[in-house]
Nucleic acid binder design. Structure first.
Length: 364
DNA sequence: CAGACGTGGGA
DNA sequence: TTCCCAAGTCT
């Protein structure tokens, strides 16, 4: 046994499983993805829930299943519509990977989500957590599904002082789960661990007095439950200055641009924009030149109508918004087109776009 | 491994 | 206001 897990000897695994699972059966939340164990729906929910709160996911999940009820429906859908279903959820590569993997399942596995660790882990966007979650929840296979909740809960119960911010730490917790998971009810067990983390064993001020497994908790026993888990923090945010432009054609349509297929906000649409490299303070004419050089178009800025800030996990965008015009000779293509305000509904945009659109609507 | 990759909410 | 997230994965 790994040394970090020596405290497993201190708990009665059978009693721990029973206390945890019976609590889960009595207290679990009524969530839309718990209505059945359709592997596809479990899959969709697990992807949506990555780094995203349950309350945020619920309406997205319901609409997504409404739009794409089955593997086949999603496999045959256009990417623009799929991205639109994800608009506002963030981490957009999740849904592009899901779309790609669902297509693979539809053809290679005849529309049935595979049920082996090897096959399911090879699907795009399915890492160790999601693989374990689908295998246990949809198929009842006793595989670990170690997320942030599980690491927090088990670090307290087993008094594990490894830094959960380190990628290599996950395997310590996977080994812990393998040793304590219920083989009779792996689905309930894994979900119970996460549910406990969400409802009772919360990051700050856990409700130990309400905890169904307090008697098994080494951390509580030692009075160190609020010191765990150990998690080193790292947050370096870069500031990026941008200028974006609203260009209208003769019919009042606005010009939009499709972002590259890789990287930040991949394949989403945006307002034409350029980065203003600091510390140079740029005049309107200079910015216009920058636009013209960057996009090989003749752009003029007429008026600044404000600016917005948009915060990502790893950088901050400060965007000045301009009204402007484009010279003759411009023609639409796959990346550039004019759309009406109504047609915004048919394209997926990042939240920063909607912030700027609001500014524009206040201006006109 | 470290950094990229979104967003809205709570303390 | 500022920080830290919340059911991670990819490169």
């Amino acid at each position: 046994m790994v040394n970090e897990l020596k405290n497993i000897e201190n708990i009665s695994i059978k009693n721990f499983q029973e206390d945890l699972i019976s609590w889960f059966k009595a207290e679990q939340r009524d969530l839309p993805w718990r209505k059945d164990q359709d592997p596809y729906k479990v899959w969709v929910s697990e992807i949506m829930l990555q780094q995203t709160r349950v309350d945020t996911v619920i309406p997205y999940f319901n609409r997504f299943i409404e739009w794409f009820p089955t593997i086949e429906d999603l496999a045959n859908a256009n990417e623009d519509k799929v991205l639109k279903a994800w608009e506002g959820l963030g981490y957009y590569s999740r849904v592009r990977n899901l779309h790609s993997a669902v297509k693979e399942v539809n053809t290679k596995y005849d529309g049935k989500v595979p049920d082996t660790p090897k096959e399911i882990s090879n699907l795009k966007g399915v890492g160790p957590y999601t693989a374990g979650a689908i295998l246990s929840i949809a198929y009842g296979i006793p595989e670990p599904a170690v997320d942030g909740n599980v690491m927090r809960v088990l670090s307290r119960i087993l008094s594990i002082w490894e830094d959960i911010a380190k990628p290599s730490t996950r395997k310590v917790f996977e080994e812990a789960v393998r040793q304590v998971i219920s083989h009779d009810e792996p689905s309930a067990f894994n979900q119970a661990l996460m549910e406990l983390g969400a409802l009772i064993c919360t990051p700050t001020s856990p409700s130990c007095l309400l905890c169904p497994v307090r008697d098994h908790c080494q951390g509580f026993h030692e009075g160190v439950e609020t010191e765990l888990p150990i998690k080193t923090k790292k947050n370096t945010q870069r500031n990026v200055e941008l200028a974006a432009i609203i260009v209208k054609d003769d019919n009042g349509k606005i010009l939009i641009h499709k972002r590259p297929e890789n990287g930040l906000l991949a394949n989403l649409w945006e307002l034409p924009n350029v980065e203003l490299h600091q510390p140079i303070v740029m005049e309107r004419a200079q910015i216009a030149d920058l636009f013209s050089e960057t996009f090989d178009m003749n752009i003029k800025l007429e008026k600044n109508i404000g600016q917005i800030e948009h915060i990502f996990s790893h950088l901050v965008w400060n965007i000045r918004l301009y009204i402007g015009t484009i010279g003759a000779g411009f023609s639409e293509n796959n990346e550039w087109k004019f759309i009406t305000l109504d047609e915004i509904e048919q394209h997926a945009f990042p939240v920063s776009f909607h912030k700027m659109l609001k500014l524009y609507k206040e201006y006109i």
